[in-house]
Each structure stands twice: as C-alpha cells, then as structure tokens.
Simulated scan of single mutants.
Amino acid sequence: MPGPKYDIEGAIFIRFAMVGRPVLNGLAAKGQRRRRDPQCSILFARDIVTALRAQIGFRRDGEALEDATVQEFLRAAIWEIPVEDCAVLVGIDATPRDAAKRHISKRLAERLKTEFEIFHAPAFRHGDSGTGPLGPRG
C-alpha cells in the first residue's frame, strides 16, 4: 500500500514566498553587489529541505540520507537556474513573478523526485531540544 502523497512542488512554491528578499536578490544578481551570491543558493536550499523534512524523508538505494546531502544537491540545482529566470523572481509584476516561481518549483521538485526516493517521514519537533510531546523547557 503506497504512503500518502506529498506536494513537493507546492511546498517549494510556498518557500519562495517565505524566503527573504535578499536571498532572491542574491540569486538574481540584483543585490548590493550586483553579482550572484553563491551563499544565497545555500540558504535557499537549506530552507527548502528544512520545510520538506517536516513531512518527508529522502533515500537513495534504500538508505535514508542526511539533510546535508539533499541540501547540497538542491543547492547545485538552484545555482543552475539561469540568472535571467531568477531576475523575474524579483520583478515588480506579480503575474510573471508567480509564473516563474511555479515553473522553477516544478523543475526543482522533478529533480528531487528523479534523484531521490521520497518517503513519508513526519518529523516531530518540539523546539530544537524537544524529546517528546511536552519536551524540556528552556
């Protein structure tokens, strides 16, 4: 019996709305330095993987992978997005901006599904040091 389906594309699309404008500007070479900032692809990949890991896990050859492995793969995939496509993400007009977010989200989701086996693995987190339903305080 297959497990529940998870909308990876939708989750990535939401991360575009949640990620800081400086990160998108850095990917689009529209920041202060007017150059692409490789650190922005690292930050965005980390943000996406953290959000996805709340519900799913990633395996390769039946072995569960560390988040860092998935983050590095996604960082490279984000960095491969042409700067022109990223520039649309920080444009004024919402219609092409949302279309670009949808298109890029779809491409990133497809790459993740092609590279990794996705499995249902809801993560229960009660703060960073939680150990149970109530977890330690402070």
Results as ranks from 00 to 15, higher is better:
residue 4 P to Y: 06
residue 5 K to C: 05
residue 6 Y to G: 01
residue 8 I to H: 00
residue 10 G to S: 06
residue 11 A to S: 14
residue 11 A to L: 08
residue 11 A to W: 00
residue 15 R to P: 00
residue 16 F to A: 03
residue 16 F to T: 02
residue 16 F to N: 02
residue 18 M to P: 00
residue 18 M to Y: 14
residue 20 G to C: 09
residue 20 G to F: 10
residue 21 R to A: 15
residue 21 R to V: 12
residue 22 P to S: 09
residue 22 P to W: 04
residue 23 V to P: 00
residue 23 V to I: 13
residue 23 V to N: 03
residue 24 L to K: 10
residue 24 L to N: 03
residue 25 N to E: 13
residue 25 N to S: 10
residue 26 G to D: 04
residue 26 G to M: 05
residue 26 G to N: 04
residue 29 A to Y: 02
residue 31 G to P: 01
residue 32 Q to P: 09
residue 32 Q to H: 12
residue 33 R to C: 08
residue 34 R to N: 15
residue 34 R to Y: 08
residue 35 R to W: 05
residue 36 R to S: 10
residue 37 D to E: 15
residue 37 D to V: 07
residue 38 P to R: 04
residue 38 P to E: 06
residue 38 P to F: 05
residue 39 Q to L: 12
residue 39 Q to F: 11
residue 39 Q to H: 11
residue 39 Q to I: 11
residue 44 F to L: 13
residue 46 R to Q: 15
residue 46 R to I: 07
residue 46 R to F: 09
residue 47 D to P: 02
residue 50 T to H: 14
residue 53 R to Y: 07
residue 54 A to C: 10
residue 55 Q to F: 12
residue 56 I to M: 07
residue 57 G to A: 10
residue 58 F to G: 04
residue 59 R to A: 11
residue 60 R to C: 06
residue 62 G to L: 02
residue 63 E to F: 06
residue 63 E to C: 07
residue 64 A to Y: 05
residue 64 A to W: 05
residue 65 L to I: 08
residue 66 E to S: 13
residue 68 A to P: 00
residue 70 V to C: 07
residue 71 Q to Y: 05
residue 72 E to A: 15
residue 73 F to Y: 14
residue 75 R to N: 08
residue 80 E to M: 07
residue 80 E to D: 15
residue 81 I to R: 01
residue 81 I to V: 14
residue 82 P to L: 10
residue 84 E to T: 12
residue 85 D to K: 06
residue 86 C to W: 01
residue 87 A to C: 12
residue 90 V to I: 13
residue 90 V to Q: 01
residue 91 G to E: 11
residue 91 G to P: 02
residue 91 G to Q: 14
residue 93 D to R: 06
residue 93 D to K: 06
residue 96 P to A: 03
residue 96 P to R: 00
residue 97 R to M: 12
residue 97 R to S: 04
residue 100 A to N: 01
residue 100 A to S: 12
residue 101 K to A: 10
residue 101 K to M: 15
residue 101 K to V: 05
residue 102 R to Q: 10
residue 103 H to Y: 07
residue 103 H to W: 03
residue 105 S to Y: 02
residue 106 K to H: 11
residue 107 R to W: 03
residue 108 L to A: 02
residue 110 E to W: 07
residue 110 E to F: 09
residue 110 E to T: 09
residue 110 E to A: 15
residue 112 L to W: 00
residue 113 K to C: 13
residue 114 T to F: 09
residue 114 T to Q: 14
residue 115 E to S: 08
residue 116 F to E: 03
residue 116 F to K: 04
residue 116 F to P: 03
residue 116 F to S: 04
residue 116 F to W: 05
residue 117 E to Q: 12
residue 117 E to N: 06
residue 118 I to D: 03
residue 118 I to R: 05
residue 119 F to Q: 06
residue 121 A to C: 08
residue 121 A to W: 00
residue 122 P to W: 05
residue 122 P to N: 07
residue 124 F to I: 13
residue 125 R to A: 15
residue 125 R to S: 12
residue 127 G to P: 07
residue 128 D to W: 08
residue 129 S to R: 08
residue 130 G to E: 07
residue 134 L to T: 14
residue 135 G to W: 08
residue 137 R to N: 14
